[in-house]
Amino acid sequence: MPSLLEVRDLVTRFYSEGAVIHAVNGVSFSLDTGASMAIVGESGSGKSVTVMSLMRLVRFPPGRIEGGEVIFEERDLLRLSEEEMRRIRGNRIAMIFQDPMTSLNPVLSIGLQMTEGLRAHLGLGERAARDRAAEMLSLVGLPRPKERLDDYPHQFSGGQRQRIMIALALSCNPALLIADEPTTALDVTVQAQIVELIQGLREKLGMAVIWISHNLGLVAGVVDKVAVMYGGHIVEQSPVDELYEHPRHPYTLGLLKAIPKMDGRDQGRLFSIDGMPPDLRRPPESCPFAPRCIYAVDRCRQALPPLDELGAGQSVRCWRADEVAALNVAGAMR
């Protein structure tokens, strides 16, 4: 059975004030129907631009998708007309965003914002669309959904608004949901609720989910596999357990070490990776992580390592992956 989504060699660049920003530099991954994965990495690693490119929501100017293929339900999205793409957005692929406080239009009622997609994609009438919207709101656990359709975003709390965004995104029964850091702007207590809500709905509705996050810990329990991005590349991709047990890339190691431990073994100090992320206006020809990598040797500063397939769905982009793995025997860094 072909995958639901197959991304091959995706390249997206931004053109700004004479500079070219190499945001996504040949990213490839695939996702099966109903499966879930996480794309993790720090700010500026290219994870958000990657998923915005899938939806073709990168605006030109300044951004442009310059190469690659995005095969979704056996069609290359990058070759569709704008009109065909519009019929996929919000319908087959839906998205929820980081900040629920700003993602809803402040001057339009929740009902209008929820029904406009339903009417455009499913051709529902006003009445039917409102019924469907209310049904979705109750699915995400919003009390008195029917009455609240006429309320405006400012009459809801942050957590409620993210629930509304989720209801909105799922209302057309998408095959793929992209969740771009949906919990970052929320209270810690609400974060777990939102993750659980999306996970529960995924099982119920059978859709695939791509989580974008910089928090490996938060999504670990709900995804099948993880892609780690750095400097516009996927540097490691792996089934989630394998990633935790046998991280291969030094950057992944660093990310895992940076998760706070609850037993005090980190003695009150959080681990952090020294140095700065690469300047994507002048992307290095070599391994982008080399300047910050404690394992770097001359070779790392000379050429970009290829993405090595290690079998069992694991791949890594590092010249010294085997040695790094050997130096960090399972669990040693925990």
Binding site: M55, L57, R86, R87, I88, R89, G90, N91, A94, M95, F97, D99, T102, S103, L104, N105, P106, V107, L108, E116, G117, A120, H121, M165, L168
Partner: peptide, 23 residues
Amino acid sequence: DYVRTARAKGLSEWLVVVRHILR
């Protein structure tokens, strides 16, 4: 952000401009 949300919903550019931006 809400304009991006409107586009992500798959609305026509006309609706995005008139309903979400202009208003």
